[in-house]
Simulated assay, not measured.
Amino acid sequence: MDATVLIVEDEPGIADILRITLKYNGFTVYEAATGRQALAAAREHRPDLVLLDVMLPDGSGWDVCRALREERAAERTDGDPGDPSDLGVIFVTARDAPRDVVAGLALGGDDYITKPFGVDELVARVHAVLRRTRRRTPPAARVLRHGDLEMDEATYTVTRAGNPVELTPTEYNLLRHLLRNAGRILTKEQLLQHVWRYESAVSSTVVETYISYLRRKLDRWGPPLIETRRGVGYGICPPRPAAEGPR
């Protein structure tokens, strides 16, 4: 896969392992040891994916991730072809508490790998995230509509009741798969396979987490859209009449 990866890691030994592994697997690699260097390198080299340590000498990798997402989103607003959905972010950190994993995903991370890690697993996850996030022109780009919700697959934009809904790449892909299968209940296993594309490396709790993120952003502008079928999975609800209002 022809892609560029930015490694943000202040421990030389780990940075060396990441660099050697990725170059061996055909990636173009750039490196940064601080948050400030990471933002500068991202602006200069426009990486497809960032491997981001959480604990950096000049601050938090979470802040770096937030800044990267904001800069890409600002570019899109200004008419630049840059799009926040074309940047993958994987946190690589020793912080393995569940609250840290959830926090990293909530801030815009596409995946979360804890140290120590196996290089084969890391490469597999890099490939999986890139399959979801690298920009490409869809063979049949279209506007998906469901009630007052619209998703433009050509511009990677989502609106509800005319209001823009900002989504991370994984949130966007999850919502797109739900919309393409509106009227069906999809199991967690189906969502893991089609959205995350690797079943064994991701816990089914990640699906629940991302469903909650989508609900929080979508339900702000209208009645609930995502239905939970307990013990089965999730689906998009039939559009409700406007007179009913939010539940």
Rank of each mutant, 00 (worst) to 15 (best):
R197K: 13
R197P: 04
R197I: 07
R197V: 12
R197F: 07
R197D: 09
Y198E: 13
Y198T: 15
Y198R: 14
Y198F: 05
Y198L: 07
E199N: 12
E199C: 08
E199W: 04
E199K: 14
S200A: 14
S200M: 02
A201T: 05
A201P: 00
A201C: 01
A201E: 13
A201F: 09
A201W: 02
A201Q: 11
A201D: 08
V202A: 00
V202G: 03
V202D: 01
S203W: 03
S203T: 08
S203K: 10
S203V: 07
S203H: 10
S203L: 04
S203A: 14
S204K: 11
S204C: 01
S204G: 04
S204D: 12
S204N: 14
T205A: 13
T205N: 14
T205C: 01
T205E: 12
T205D: 11
V206G: 00
V206I: 09
V206Q: 03
V206K: 04
V206P: 01
V207G: 04
V207T: 06
V207W: 02
V207N: 03
V207K: 02
E208F: 10
E208A: 13
T209M: 14
T209K: 08
Y210K: 13
Y210D: 00
Y210R: 15
Y210M: 03
Y210C: 01
I211S: 04
I211R: 06
I211E: 05
I211H: 02
I211V: 14
S212H: 12
S212A: 13
S212W: 04
S212G: 11
Y213K: 09
Y213Q: 10
Y213P: 00
L214T: 00
L214N: 03
L214K: 03
L214R: 05
L214Q: 05
R215V: 00
R215Q: 15
R215C: 05
R215K: 13
R215Y: 07
R215L: 02
R215W: 00
R216G: 07
R216E: 11
R216M: 14
R216Y: 04
R216Q: 14
R216S: 11
R216F: 03
K217N: 05
K217C: 06
K217P: 07
K217Y: 04
K217M: 05
K217D: 06
K217L: 07
L218S: 06
L218G: 06
L218H: 06
L218D: 04
L218E: 01
L218F: 13
L218P: 07
D219A: 03
D219H: 09
D219E: 14
R220T: 06
R220A: 15
R220V: 05
R220N: 06
W221L: 00
W221T: 01
W221Y: 15
W221E: 00
W221R: 01
G222Q: 05
G222F: 00
G222W: 01
G222S: 13
G222N: 04
G222T: 02
G222H: 08
P223T: 09
P223V: 07
P223W: 11
P224A: 12
P224C: 15
P224H: 11
P224Y: 15
P224V: 10
P224W: 06
P224T: 11
L225N: 13
L225S: 12
L225C: 11
I226H: 11
I226F: 12
I226T: 09
I226W: 09
I226D: 10
I226A: 11
